[in-house]
Design a protein around this nucleic acid. Structure first.
Length: 174
DNA sequence: TCCGTATTGAGGC
DNA sequence: GCCTCAATACGGA
C-alpha cells in the first residue's frame, strides 16, 4: 500500500496570540498569523489552499526547533530572515513564480505589485500578482506584506491593520 | 467561456 | 486631491 502523505500542523503560542505552523514531508507549507484563540487560527488554516494530503495530524512541535523563537523575535522587532524550505507546488506556475520572487524580498524592504510583475515572466500582470499573494498560505515566511501598491498600501488577507503592523516592525513607515 | 481581483494610469472635475 | 473608466493577466467556476 502506498504510504499516505499526511499534513502536519502545530499550534504556536506567541505574545500576540496563537499561530499555526503547517508542513508536509519536512517542507514548510502553511503559517497562520497569531489569533486571539486557537479556534480562530484554525479557521484561517482551514481556508488555505494546501498541497494535496490524505489527513491532518496535530503535532506538539514543528521540525524546526528554532522557528518559534524566530517568530517571536520577529514580533519583538528583531531583523529575522526565514530560510526554511517551503512547498507551494499545489499552485499553478505563475502563482509559484510570484511567491518565489516575494520570498526573496529582504527584511525591511518593500516592492510594488508592478515591480514584482516586472521581475516575473509577465511584466504587466500586476493584478495577477495581487491575486497570487492573496493566496499565500505562508505569510511572514513568504513576506507578502512587503508588496504594496504604488500609491497606497494595497491589500492584505488578514486585514490592512496586520500589514501595517508588520511593516512597522520592519521600520517601514508609509 | 465568463467573472472577479491585495493594480495602474489617464482624464475630468 | 478624489472620482471614474479602461486596460490588463490570471485562475476558478
Amino acid at each position: 500500500m502506498r504510504k499516505s502523505n499526511s499534513f502536519f500542523y502545530s499550534f504556536l503560542s506567541t505574545p500576540l496570540g496563537t499561530a499555526i505552523i503547517g508542513w508536509q514531508n519536512d517542507l514548510l507549507a502553511a503559517f497562520v498569523l497569531p489569533q486571539p484563540t486557537p479556534e480562530e487560527a484554525f479557521q484561517y488554516f482551514q481556508s488555505y489552499h494546501l498541497p494535496h494530503h490524505d489527513s491532518f495530524i496535530l503535532e506538539t512541535k514543528s521540525p524546526w526547533l528554532d522557528l518559534s523563537d524566530k517568530v517571536n523575535a520577529y514580533f519583538s522587532g528583531e531583523k529575522v530572515m526565514f530560510s526554511e524550505p517551503i512547498i507551494i507546488n499545489q499552485f499553478p506556475d505563475y502563482t509559484r513564480q510570484i511567491l518565489d520572487i516575494t520570498k526573496n524580498i529582504p527584511w525591511g524592504e518593500v516592492k510594488t505589485y508592478q515591480q514584482v510583475a516586472q521581475l516575473s515572466s509577465q511584466k504587466r500582470a500586476y493584478r495577477a500578482v495581487g491575486q497570487a499573494l492573496h493566496r499565500n498560505p505562508i505569510p511572514l515566511i513568504i513576506p507578502c506584506h512587503r508588496v504594496i501598491a504604488k500609491n497606497s498600501l494595497g491589500g492584505f488577507g488578514y486585514g490592512l491593520n496586520w500589514k501595517l503592523r508588520l511593516l512597522t516592525l520592519e521600520n517601514i513607515h508609509l
